[in-house]
Amino acid sequence: MREKNHDHKECISIFRKLSEYIDGELDEKAYEEMRTHINECMKCEVCLETLRRTADLCRGMKTREIPDRLRERLKSMVHGPSNP
């Protein structure tokens, strides 16, 4: 049975620390406590994984190429305007 009957106060406290959990910024004890809870609570796992995916999607966003006009502006800023 995945879902245990637990006090959802714990879920709220987990919710507040999800980013630190994702980023590995918790101490070992806090991390283990959260891991144990999340393994047993599907709702917290959904919150965790959708938040993790949000960060991953940001990380994977496509980048745009620099426009030629900006490249030219930067070049002439450094070297001076090019002669026609």
Partner: peptide, 14 residues
């Protein structure tokens, strides 16, 4: 109200 399963956008490969 939180779903009991992952939405597809969190489970599909990135």
């Amino acid at each position: 109200n939180i779903p009991d399963s992952l939405p597809y956008w969190a489970s599909e490969p990135l």
